[in-house]
């Protein structure tokens, strides 16, 4: 307990880092996943803009990246991280790897939730003279908003989980904190403090997500 009090400032620094990594990933990976998911849904046979080639290529791409265990993916993605964010280590590298992985994961969540939208509603929009882009943005997405919010909440929790692995490339956050100051220094109290804070963060996120989704679905 004394050790935790000594580490007080480092603990809150780690919390801020986790929040920063998760927020950046949710933003970048969330947008990436949304775009990929929309493309997967609209190019499918019978979709708004069917395109066999694009659909097959995207499917292969998503299926290639999704099964790679994240801890290996960080290492494998290091050269790409150096190219894109200029460094293969630290928080920028971890945000890069997380965003790429989250994009592919979220794309499937988005695709699944868009399938639940009645094709008849999209047909009605087309019949009123709306183009494909307008139908996608002003009908398809709003109609699926409730389930999408729940899907993103699920993704957010997964990102918190994955972010804890940041220490393999020298990234920070509560995961690194728990491993460095708790696990390696035989301080279970420190480890558990990090664990409890992560649990609390996840609870808050899930609660907020449920509330938002309920508002969107008016239930």
């Amino acid at each position: 307990m004394d050790r935790l009090i000594e580490l007080d400032s480092l603990f809150w620094e780690a919390t801020r880092e986790t929040l920063g990594i998760v927020a950046a990933t949710l933003l970048i990976g969330g947008v990436g996943g949304l775009v990929l998911g929309l493309l997967l849904h609209t190019t499918r046979p019978g979709g708004i803009a069917p395109n066999r080639v694009v659909h097959v290529v995207l499917n292969l791409l998503v299926n290639f990246f999704r099964p790679i265990p994240f801890v290996i993916f960080i290492a494998a993605a290091q050269p790409a991280a150096r190219l894109v964010v200029g460094t293969g280590i630290g928080n920028p590298a971890i945000i890069f790897a997380l965003s790429v992985a989250a994009s592919f994961g979220i794309s499937r969540i988005v695709e699944q939730n868009l399938v639940s939208v009645d094709p008849g509603v999209l047909e009605a929009s087309r019949a009123m003279g709306a183009g494909r882009l307008r139908t996608t943005l002003t009908v398809l997405l709003p109609e699926a908003l409730g389930p999408l919010i729940l899907g993103y909440t699920f993704a957010l929790v997964a990102i918190v989980d994955m972010s804890a692995i940041a220490s393999v490339v020298g990234g920070g956050g509560l995961g690194s904190f728990a491993l460095t100051y708790g696990y390696r220094q035989y301080e279970p109290v420190v480890t558990w403090a990090a664990v409890l804070l992560i649990v609390a963060l996840v609870q808050v996120c899930q609660f907020a997500g449920n509330r938002l989704a309920r508002t969107a679905m008016r239930r």
Binding site: G120, A124, G129
Partner: peptide
């Protein structure tokens, strides 16, 4: 073309068996 059709479709209303209203509105 799909683009030229948008104008034509404004002159043609359509109703459906399952109504196909936007639940989000």
């Amino acid at each position: 073309s799909e683009r030229a059709l948008r104008e034509v479709r404004r002159d043609i209303g359509m109703i459906f068996q399952q109504f196909n209203l936007f639940a989000s509105r």
